[in-house]
Design a protein around this nucleic acid. Structure first.
Lengths: 229, 229
DNA sequence: AAATAACCTTGATGATGATCAAGTTTTGTT
DNA sequence: AACAAAACTTGATCATCATCAAGGTTATTT
């Protein structure tokens, strides 16, 4: 796969959700402008406060976006998976990155220069629409997170996360695989690893879920909805 | 002003930040499609979970966007002021409103049908760019809020909000007028009115601010930055 | 396969902020 | 101007979650 992309960057770009709408010609132009970036596990792509020049598409690996407070404590905002992009919003804002980006696996990304995407946007209303949809989706996700963040109980937050990750909302039983280490997921929920662990324990006690490593089996989705404390 | 808009809806639309880029012809088309909505203080425009059909531009008054939990407690996400729009992101998502909208003052809004704005977007890349910028800005704000929400201390959150509302970041002294009732601002910071009140008190004690009603005089912005508890 | 490191769990304690309650001030209405 | 209602403040108490600490488990490396 990795070689494939090296050889056929154009094809790889065309397969990305965001760029699927582009014409062959446009994809060609794009491919000529992007730069490949490789990161080893643990490496920092950019820090909060850095000046953005474009945006990134993750082709392979895993990147996490996080705030870091003065004391060095981290709060993970988002885990980026292959095919997803990040940093688009900054193209239009002229502000520094509000978060840091770190590779949690060996990664291959494409660095798309700002002017390239702005050029494409001028001419291609389909791409504009796609980007609007992408950013809107991101916005929606953030609203959900903020809502979760203002829900009182830690257990409720965890239950809520498990519901959100259901493959199908109508199912009452399903399995969820956590997208990252438990401490990372905890951080996304604005919880300490300890509290997260206890919350999972409580939900197990209540017979609502079964935990084995990163795989969580939801036994009673309806019960999760009714969690009070 | 209100009559003015009634007479000259086209002119009013052209003056709105989002639509300033439109041609006369486009503005004319838009004006023919929008519907005026008037709300009395306290009235609900839509509830969380409702199906959106378009988006809104606030011309006059004040609207607040909030979550409401099952128990009826409210958490204000945003206070919309005249000239601002909301609900754009839903145009691209096919999801229910994630928040409720309530008038906190008598209001006049324009209801822009989804298909109208999508039509305009097809042809006008300037508008697309403007919308992208608008939504990106919203996204950025939300990230800031989430970050604030994960900062530990309530007093820090209040101090942070006061810094953010500085008319000019380089000033060490300035006045801030809260955009809404204190309980609303408290809610935006994910605090109870009581805790908010105490935080303001603490900052006053420390000689960093002076409070008189909704007007807060910041005496030492640098000190605010260093607030620890 | 052994060793090391990272990750996770469980317990005990403490601080922060929510809640409840009562009083004060401000705002708005008649 | 007087009254009512909403908004705000202050105090006391309590619950939740973070922190600290130690032991256990799973991954990774050699």
């Amino acid at each position: 796969m990795r070689e494939r992309i090296g050889e056929d960057r154009q094809g790889a770009l065309g397969r990305l959700p965001l760029f699927r709408v582009l014409s062959t010609e446009e994809t060609q132009y794009l491919a000529s402008q992007v730069r490949e970036v490789r990161l080893g596990r643990g490496e920092i792509l950019f820090n909060k406060g850095d000046t953005p020049h474009g945006f990134y598409v993750l082709v392979e690996g895993c990147v996490q976006l996080a705030f870091t407070s003065e004391q060095g404590t981290e709060r993970v905002l988002e885990v980026i998976k292959p095919g997803e992009s990040f940093g688009e919003a900054l193209l239009f804002l002229d502000k520094p990155y509000p978060v840091s980006a770190q590779a949690t696996q060996d990664c291959m990304l494409l660095d798309v220069p700002g002017h390239t995407i702005l050029n494409l946007l001028e001419k291609d209303s389909q791409l504009a629409r796609k980007m609007l949809a992408g950013i809107s989706m991101r916005l929606h996700e953030l609203i959900r997170k903020l809502e979760a963040c203002s829900m009182r109980s830690s257990t409720q937050r965890v239950a809520c996360m498990l519901q959100h990750r259901a493959p199908d909302k109508s199912l009452n039983q399903y399995e969820v695989e956590l997208p990252a280490a438990k401490q990372t997921v905890a951080s996304q929920l604005n919880l300490t690893p300890e509290t997260f662990s206890r919350a999972l324990h409580a939900l197990s006690e209540a017979g609502l879920i079964e935990v084995s490593g990163r795989v969580i089996k939801v036994l009673d989705a309806d019960g999760l909805r009714r969690v009070e404390i």
